[in-house]
Amino acid sequence: MASSAKPSSVANSGASVGGKSIAANLLDVAIGRFQWPQGALLYFLPPERELLPDRAIRLSFQAYLKFSGLAYEDVCALNADYMSPSGQSPFLVLQFGTRPIIFSNFFQLVSFIEAQKLGLGQDLDKKEKSEHEAYISLIKMSLLSAMEYDAWISKASRQETLSSYSHGLPWPLKHLVPYSQYYKYRWNHWGLYKRDEASVLSEFNDACNALSVHLGGSRSFYQSGPTALDALMCGCVEAILNSSSQKLKSILSSYDNLVDFCHSSVLSQRKGLQFISSPSTANLSSNQ
């Protein structure tokens, strides 16, 4: 196995191992023959560690991949948030050759997949596309912020959040880590921390109202079929309805069409969201 070294050539090849697959993939992307890789893995936290916003994003990830027909497998890991480059669960690992590409942000994944023309929303016209972006931003700014507020700042569920961080840790870390995470969150989200609950809830209500009006009586936001907005909304509604947050739940429950939307038959694939592992299906290419 031992090889006599040829220093410069070995060093160069060693340095380019990481860059090569990215370059090759960029080329694939550029010439339009990008293929969804086999063995994509979605890492997320187990239910006892998962906070409300993490659960909403995880369900959105799962819904989006299901709607797009992209094969992946679920992996539940107690340290999924620390494994993620952004420090947030969930994250999706796509294995290209020797090097993984990781998406820890739902919106990045959506733009990547849509750029490859693999995802949903290909049939939207220009106006619908900009509207679609605006509603996604609305969910990000209002619904997800309200869920974060509920999980970290609202006194009712703060204790539950802190205890979720103590899972699987030895003494005395089970007491130290939750508080260190809480104070870290507080400093990093000072603007949200200083807001009052009523304004956050009223913004949440306004956003639900706008989304409810936009959805109307149909089973998806756009006639052409489910899009990233449907996946995100489905994830958020599902997470809130199954959470212990009474305030968010009561507001959301008053919008029957949003609740029905989540339970509707158009999103029959939503049953798949409950899966802990789903079987891999055949590779999809851009032609499919």
Binding site: L78, N79, Y82, M83, P85, G87, I101, I102, L173
Partner: peptide, 23 residues
């Protein structure tokens, strides 16, 4: 009390699995 985090994007799962807190 050690905390492993902030992994580069290309770090494989075999190294990433050690992430998190340990005492």
């Amino acid at each position: 009390w050690r905390e492993l985090f902030g992994f580069d994007n290309g770090v494989p799962m075999s190294i990433r699995k050690d992430a998190g807190h340990s005492l």
